[in-house]
Design a protein around this nucleic acid. Sequence first.
DNA 1: AAAAAATCCAACCGCCTCCTC
DNA 2: GGAGGAGGCGGTTGGATTTTT
Length: 317
Amino acid sequence: MGRSPCCDKMGLKKGPWSPEEDEKLLDYIQQHGHGSWRALPSKAGLERCGKSCRLRWTNYLRPDIKRGHISLQEEQTIIQLHALLGNRWSTIASHLPQRTDNEIKNYWNTHLKKRLIKMGIDPTTHRPNNLALTCGEPKDSANLSHLAQWESARLEAEARLVHDTKPVMLNPHHYYQLPSTTLLHHPHPPCLDIFKVLAWTNPGEDISTVVLNGGLFPPASILNFSDNMLPIPTLGLCNGNLSITDINSEYSINDARIDPFDPTYVADSSSFPSFMEDLTDLQPSSISAADNVCWELMRRIRFITRETLWIQVPMLS
DNA sequence: AAAAAATCCAACCGCCTCCTC
DNA sequence: GGAGGAGGCGGTTGGATTTTT
């Protein structure tokens, strides 16, 4: 059962590559392209298996890769994407130009993982370790885990931003009066709280009237629909009473039917404490049916950048 | 200065998916 | 439909290097 590894063939070299081998491989690919990896070694005069050649090329010799120092921004991206995607290194690498999946995987295992552990965060679930002890029933664990992943990535990002910039403290009931001069000087949103991001992206404006992009966001190139992630077309906020437009429908993308109001989704108030605090004030009598719907959607927010807002919704098969 | 421990990272292994026949 | 090949992916290893004792 199974195939034996191609390197098991007699006479094929293994282990570190010599400069001469590198040169042969580089010369061959530059002249002919790699073509069939299996056929390449003999054509290039290498006593290696095709797999070994491919790995050497993609992880080391390729001219378009960047090696060495990983910036803070790259670190932040890795943590956030890992919280969302798990150990899908190639997908994560595709969002970090010129970095290889192997390099990111190594960096995660040797640096970031340890750092999260030191911070008391489980690097697998991105959940604070003490949460694991209070976690409830197994059926809720997946959803709680998703929320925790988001939350720890958010906290990590916030921690960095706090490090880099003076934090902007906001009264949760007066999000909309942020001075635009403060906001304009931030190269990034002062934090990832949705209201604050809204205020930042629209400095000086009354965001009670802001409507986030119509159409699809984030960009399809970033979004992997199989991850149960979908953009919400239009979201509006009004004076603390929340309302939303164009959501009273199911979405259909790539034949996957989505029900944004699926009641099986379990939210956790710890994910968005200030927002939930606001909602608590609104409950129960002042919340309209539409607001309730919005509330449900807001609970599913997973990831926010300057211009995008990602929301997790369940897929219907 | 030497030994031990820790860290790093290139490379390998085996499984999986996709494609062709 | 399914067998087999090729490439891709993630987990893991082990030798080299660095740090600590």
